[in-house]
């Protein structure tokens, strides 16, 4: 990134090849919308170019990148004045998934569906901690820098998120098995 900052813009291509999948995964797990996730990845790289002078190289690049990603996600919903869209989309998605068809699915597919619904049910901060820690492999201190809280707070969020997930998974499993 320091080379991009120094004007070697072609080096951003290398960063893209290395991190675009990770960023896409981050947004997809947050939004479950492929097109929106692609738009947000593009937005992150545009911001990296725009704000390249603010990159100091002091912290880790990943932390800087996910901070931009987080802001891009927040800004998107603010600009669109669709702060409640997550909930609406969740409702639509849950309605769209035909529960009557679940009996025909194999157990593994059903389990995945339950896990995805459980993650979606977490609040944004907890969901973000789970995504960054479990899927993107960031350390708690890095997540703390991104979320602007202490490392201990992130650890507590992680534990509570897992506890909530466990409860939701149990509830959803019971619901499906009763259908």
């Amino acid at each position: 990134m320091m080379k991009v900052k120094d004007g070697q813009l072609d080096k951003l291509g290398l960063l893209y090849e290395r991190y675009s999948s990770s960023l896409y995964g981050f947004f997809y797990r947050k939004t479950k919308q492929p097109q929106l996730s692609e738009d947000l990845v593009q937005s992150v790289f545009e911001r990296m170019l725009k704000y390249r002078d603010t990159y100091t190289g002091d912290g880790s690049f990943t932390t800087w990148m996910f901070s931009i990603a987080r802001n891009a996600h927040i800004d998107h919903y603010r600009k669109q004045k669709r702060l409640r869209e997550d909930e609406i989309l969740d409702e639509e998605r849950i309605q769209g998934e035909d529960p009557s068809g679940l009996g025909e699915q194999d157990l593994r597919a059903q389990r995945k569906q339950i896990l995805e619904q459980a993650i979606d049910s977490l609040d944004e901060d907890k969901k973000e901690v789970v995504i960054l820690s479990r899927f993107e492999g960031l350390r708690y201190q890095e997540i703390a820098d991104i979320q602007g809280v202490s490392e201990s707070a992130v650890k507590v969020r992680m534990f509570r998120a897992m506890k909530e997930l466990k409860q939701t998974v149990t509830t959803l499993t019971n619901e499906y098995s009763n259908e």
């Binding site: 999948s21 593009q42 545009e46 899927f135």
Partner: peptide, 23 residues
């Protein structure tokens, strides 16, 4: 441990094209 099974679909080739056009 189980969360590992959750997949993320691959982004479309257009995402890469858009990036390189912007660059």
């Amino acid at each position: 441990d189980e969360l590992e099974v959750l997949p993320v679909p691959a982004p479309s080739p257009e995402m890469r094209n858009r990036f390189y056009e912007m660059l």
